[in-house]
């Protein structure tokens, strides 16, 4: 049975970090949207993610083959993505814009191409 781990992140207290984001661990509610992001050598599927400002969402990660890392540097948002596990990040986006994400765990020839874009819109 797949081990499920919840790594829930609340990103809402913008003012405390001068427009940045701050995280705290909370539990998701059943009604929140879940976006599944599968990873395999050397791609995140999907690699374009659009979120609505102020709307909580669960990003749910799986890996088909090797360990990866999902990292959005500008938002300080990251998790390991481990085969056989489901990792989740709860996100409440507060900052509009396009934020690049990357695999930050070296996973082979093609690792350098493993990235994507998280967009936050009104």
């Amino acid at each position: 049975m797949v081990k499920q781990q919840r790594n829930l992140l609340w990103l809402g207290l913008v003012a405390l970090l001068g427009g940045g984001m701050i995280g705290a661990y909370v539990f998701a509610t059943p009604t929140e949207q879940v976006i599944k992001i599968n990873s395999k050598k050397f791609v995140f599927i999907p690699n374009q993610i659009t979120l609505k400002k102020g709307t909580p969402v669960i990003l749910q990660f799986t890996s088909e083959d090797v360990m990866m890392g999902f990292y959005v540097p500008e938002l300080g948002l990251r998790t390991d993505v481990i085969p056989g596990q489901v990792r989740e990040l709860r996100v409440v986006p507060e900052k509009i814009g396009n934020f690049a994400f990357v695999c930050d765990v070296f996973c082979g020839s093609g690792h350098e191409d493993m990235n994507g874009m998280l967009s936050v819109v009104e």
Partner: peptide, 8 residues
């Protein structure tokens, strides 16, 4: 240092 973490 963090030169450009978006590219690892």
């Amino acid at each position: 240092f963090d030169l450009y973490p978006q590219w690892d």
